[in-house]
């Protein structure tokens, strides 16, 4: 599929900081350019945090709505990517909370029931496929911490705030997640 034409071609190679400034001034096209540039990363991140792909797309939508409302108050436009990722992380955690309060899902660890995409099938047998499988087997609370840290680049404090737990608990969960993941990766080898 061909690339969608950019309404103003000049935005295509504009740096994030300029786009963020324009979006902050209400320029929809600039915000759109940012969303198209970082949307795939936001979606990939949301997919690892959410239960299903549909939930992930809802999370990205919520995140973009929030971002559009708040981007005028973003101080450092060069940090817009990290800022977008933080919003996705928070929205994904919120979505998980809503899901739990609506459904009566037990506290048992949830395993992701994601059908492998053709891309994933193609890399079966690789280290990343082994990691993907191991991640899916982690208890959700550990997987979340690990994904927020490793894919979202968030600090212990940010993760703690998003999850409503202490930074020490984040450290503990991450340690357990890493221990399990390292072990499973070693067994795979």
């Amino acid at each position: 599929m061909t690339r969608l034409h950019n309404p103003t071609g000049k935005l295509a190679d504009a740096p994030d900081a300029v786009l963020a400034e324009r979006a902050g001034d209400g320029d929809v096209a600039a915000f759109e350019a940012l969303a198209r540039r970082h949307g795939p990363l936001m979606r990939a991140y949301a997919r690892r945090l959410a239960r299903t792909y549909d939930e992930a797309d809802d999370v990205v939508q919520d995140a973009l709505i929030t971002a559009w409302k708040d981007i005028g108050s973003l101080q450092d436009g060069t940090a817009v990517k990290a800022w977008l990722m933080r919003i996705v992380g928070r929205r994904a955690v919120d979505a998980g909370r809503r899901r739990k309060s609506h459904g009566n899902v037990d506290e048992q660890p949830e395993t992701a029931d994601k059908a492998p995409t053709p891309d994933q099938a193609a890399v079966a047998g690789s280290a990343r496929q082994a990691l993907s499988t191991a991640l899916a087997r982690l208890p959700e609370e550990q997987r979340r911490c690990w994904v927020l840290k490793e894919f979202g680049g968030q600090s212990y404090e940010e993760i703690a705030e998003a999850l409503g737990i202490s930074a020490a608990s984040v450290r503990g969960r991450l340690a357990r997640a890493r221990t399990t993941l390292v072990k499973e990766m070693e067994e795979w080898r």
Binding site: P40, L41, R43, A44, Y45, D119, Q120, S126, L131, S132
Partner: peptide
């Protein structure tokens, strides 16, 4: 492996 997985995930997300 995490960085490779993220690259893969982004590729399939787009």
């Amino acid at each position: 492996a995490a960085m490779e997985l993220l690259d893969d995930d982004v590729a399939s997300a787009s």
